[in-house]
Amino acid sequence: MTEDKPQSMKDKVLGEIRSQHISMKPKWQFFLKSLLIILLLSIIALYILFHTSFLFYSLHYNGSLFLTHFGVSGLRRLILSLPWLWLLSGIILTILLGILVEKQTKAYRFPLFYTVMSSILLIAIISALCVILPIQTSLHKLNTETRIPIIGPMFKNLPENEPLKTYIGEVSELNGNGFLLTNRQNQTTRVILTPETKLNNNLKLQNGLEIMMIGEQKANYIEAEGIRALLGGFGADVHAEIND
């Protein structure tokens, strides 16, 4: 009677291989998996890029970025007028992207903090470039001619995002203690200047000048607190270009 010798692990594994119970996965499967991961990460990154650059563009378009020129009062208005939900969702998506990159690539070699901060910085820089270049302006203009699917309605709703008590328009008529301001919708409002009104860079008001103004809406006029010219400023011609 012979005693069965227990099979070694080597024999068991080789037995599985020889009997073709197990086989090597083809190389294309790994290639496809890597490709899908890269594609997924790229789609998420592109969406975040659009999301963030649209945020910058909306701030630029409705003049919020200029509020920083009006001191503490302007800064307060800027903070109040920021689209916080949009901003927070952008940050959360970027953190998620950082975690995904860390899990799927060799980025685990660096602390997660570095990966996430680099993602946020990179996305902020590219998004700002999209506004400066101006990719978002071109998209906005294109959307006025042909409705772009999915992102079209976002551009359509842009003018409604104007910051609190902030007014953008053209000086249409100067008068004794103020001027008439005509906005993008061609509506005219009377503006009163007071000794407290801050004129940015010793601004000289004149007819046809495009301005951004902060102020208090009274019964039938606006009491101006600060005025800044839009001409020559950061993307000052955006409105003209879009409304052409």
Binding site: M9, K12, V13, E16, I17, I22, S23, M24, K25, P26, K27, F30
Partner: peptide
Amino acid sequence: IEDIVQEVFISVYKNLKS
């Protein structure tokens, strides 16, 4: 542990082309 290590070798073999 014997089974887990065997599974490791099988997984190594299956994924060897990667």
